[in-house]
Structures are given as structure tokens and as C-alpha cells.
Amino acid sequence: MSEQHTPTLPPTPSHTVGPFYGYALPFPDGGEIAPAGHPDTITVHGYVYDGAGEPIPDALLEFWQAAPDGSLTGAPGSLRRDPVTGGYYGRNGVDFTGFGRVPTDADGHYAVRTLPPGGAPYLSVCVFARGLLHHLFTRAYLDEPAGDTLLSGLEPARRETLLARAEADKHRTYRFDIHLQGDKETVFLAFD
């Protein structure tokens, strides 16, 4: 029997991250994906909003992306731990792990600093929050590639929700807001 006919196991159901992950999941330098001081560093930031347009102060965002050379292997060391004190060392300042994790602050704001991905020009974003029973995936496109099948299949107003916009008054900075619900609801993705 070939591999693709192997019976599948039913998955463990998802549950909300709840309100109290804040002392467990975020880690220092979680949003510092770019190696320290790298000249190509960009900042991606924005707000997470609920269906009433209110900012969400207890969302957790994760980012995964290709390295600048387009590779998708990642590297360990996002949350290096200190074996002496049990605390955090921070990233090693050399390796690009491709992974970031940041909670929103009391204003619902987040920011990550990273390197522009090679190949597909987007950061994959996974959204967790109290009240959200199953996480949501979206993408922050840093530019709009010609012939992208996802973007070209969307109406303009919906496509807009996936485009991180360069901010003219800030250095190498992009704005990417996430609306969980409402008129400006972000496009969320399902993978098959």
C-alpha cells in the first residue's frame, strides 16, 4: 500500500489560547527576527481589531517566512534559553530563524523587525487570541507579485487586506493591520 493511502488519524481539536498565555509564550526578542543591526532590516507593524473596531490587547501573532535567499529550512535559536538561570539568552545575532512571536500590547499594537523574504514576498501570519477557538492564518505581502494565484483570485477590497503598505514617513517600515471581523475583515486562509 502506498504512502498516500495510509489511513489518517483524526486530529486533536484546537482550543483558544485563553487570556493567560502572556507569561508563557512570548519571549524576549520574539519580534526581532532580523539579525541584530542588519542593514536590510524592515519593520512590519500594525494593530489587531475585533468586529467592533476595537483593538485587541490579548492577541498573539506568529510569523514564519523564507530567508532572504528563499530557503524555507529555518534555523533553531528563536527562543534560546539560558541553562544557568533558566531565563532567556535572546537570539544569537547571527542566524536567521525565520520565526517570530509577539503579543499585542495594551493598545492592540505589534511590531516585528525582519529581513525581506526571498522568493514568495510574504510573511505567513498565525493569529491567536482569547475568544478565538481556532487560530487563523493570513499573509502580509510586502509587494504584490504578478501572477500570484491567491491575490489575483480576490476582489480588490479583499486583496487589499493582505497587502502590507510601505509608510512614506518611516524608514523601511510597513503597516499591516488585522481585522478579525467587520467591513475590513482580513482574508484568512485554509490550506489543503
Binding site: 468586529g51 475568544g131 478565538l132 477557538l133 471581523q181 484568512f188
Partner: peptide
């Protein structure tokens, strides 16, 4: 207020 109303793409 924290779930999308549009279907996932």
C-alpha cells in the same frame, strides 16, 4: 466579535 464572517480562502 473575534471570528471572521467571511469563509476562509
Amino acid at each position: 466579535l473575534r471570528h471572521p464572517k467571511q469563509p476562509l480562502v
